[in-house]
Amino acid sequence: MPEYRGPGPTPIKLDVNGESRLLLAEPRRTLLDALRYDLGLTGAKKVCDRGDCGACTVLVEGVAEYACLTLAVACECKHVETIEGGGADVEALQQAFLAHDAYQCGFCTPGQIMALAALLRRDGQAGEEQVKTAVAGNLCRCGAYPNIVTAGVAASRAKTSAKAK
């Protein structure tokens, strides 16, 4: 029979941005809190803590997920990527966000970029509709949406034209 861990702190091994990280936390610790409190990776933000806003979006096994609705303990043996991890897609998106002024206060920005990074990885060439759908779960209260869409499309285009060369 499988064994229970917790409810007290239990060692949890995470693979974050290509590094193996060990932390001690209760099973109830969300991936978001583990990233922020245990690993000092504060790029993913806690805004709603209920899966309503997307500010905590990270990639788990290359797929965009809400870190606030994910248990850290359930992510053992999975590859987690955050905004701090960089990589070609993330960096291309960051450049596009800068160039197109696709942020104001910047609080939702890491989540927007990670949601789009998943898109870029999946569909090389993404048009406006795919970009909009990719960030449909990422709220921006400053209203930077038009520029976010422009930046997402530009980054996607840059990627495909780079590939073509």
Partner: peptide
Amino acid sequence: RLRVDGPQRVSGRARYTTDLM
């Protein structure tokens, strides 16, 4: 002009009050 604090805000390096540990 591009925002002078842009690189911090798009990289997750910008430290907001809630990020302070």
